[in-house]
Amino acid sequence: MVYKIDPDEDRRYIEEFRQRPIGRHSPGLMRLLCVMRVDPTGNQIILVCRKPFAEWVLATMPPDRADPIAIEDEPVFASREEAEWAVFCRRWRLLTGESINRPLHD
């Protein structure tokens, strides 16, 4: 069985992830995250920690893992939670075509 994202049904997990990007997740959110972690193009959005516990940026790992990782200069995140939220939002948009226009914290 191959899991797929159904934006109408799976949208309910967005807030759960936003409230707790790191830690325990419900089975439904875990299923969603498993789907989101595999990009069908072979590219993978990842986090790169530039300064331990202080600075993270997004990067794209290419399909051919022998090729270099493309690291983005901006934005720079001051917490891992903010960076994880940015990855989630980017992957959601790539897989559903919808943008999540909410910050990590209101």
Rank of each mutant, 00 (worst) to 15 (best):
86 A>E: 13
66 A>K: 15
68 P>R: 11
104 L>F: 09
47 L>P: 05
59 A>I: 00
11 R>K: 15
68 P>Y: 06
44 Q>V: 07
58 L>G: 03
42 G>M: 07
25 H>S: 06
45 I>G: 00
74 E>K: 15
42 G>N: 06
98 E>N: 07
78 A>W: 13
27 P>E: 09
25 H>P: 02
91 R>N: 13
84 E>K: 14
79 S>T: 15
42 G>L: 07
72 E>I: 00
45 I>N: 01
104 L>Y: 08
17 F>N: 02
58 L>D: 02
86 A>H: 08
40 P>N: 11
59 A>W: 01
13 Y>M: 04
55 E>C: 14
23 G>T: 07
62 P>N: 05
54 A>C: 07
94 L>M: 11
36 M>S: 00
72 E>G: 03
69 I>L: 14
35 V>E: 09
80 R>Q: 15
4 K>R: 13
26 S>K: 08
11 R>S: 15
93 R>N: 10
81 E>C: 14
41 T>M: 06
60 T>V: 14
105 H>I: 10
19 Q>F: 06
12 R>G: 00
47 L>M: 09
95 L>K: 13
84 E>W: 10
97 G>I: 12
20 R>H: 12
15 E>S: 15
57 V>N: 04
70 A>D: 09
99 S>R: 08
83 A>F: 03
36 M>W: 01
31 R>A: 07
36 M>I: 00
27 P>F: 02
62 P>C: 03
78 A>I: 12
6 D>N: 11
94 L>D: 09
29 L>A: 00
74 E>D: 14
39 D>W: 04
33 L>I: 02
86 A>G: 12
85 W>L: 11
6 D>H: 05
9 E>W: 04
78 A>N: 15
67 D>N: 03
44 Q>Y: 09
39 D>P: 05
23 G>V: 08
95 L>V: 08
54 A>I: 05
31 R>N: 08
65 R>Y: 12
48 V>K: 00
62 P>V: 06
61 M>T: 13
1 M>D: 05
89 C>P: 11
39 D>E: 09
5 I>D: 13
2 V>L: 10
32 L>K: 01
77 F>E: 06
40 P>M: 10
86 A>C: 12
79 S>W: 09
67 D>C: 03
99 S>Y: 03
101 N>I: 03
15 E>K: 15
78 A>K: 14
41 T>N: 07
21 P>C: 07
29 L>M: 01
55 E>G: 03
68 P>G: 05
42 G>F: 04
39 D>L: 03
39 D>N: 13
5 I>N: 13
96 T>G: 09
12 R>Q: 10
69 I>D: 12
38 V>S: 14
82 E>F: 12
77 F>P: 04
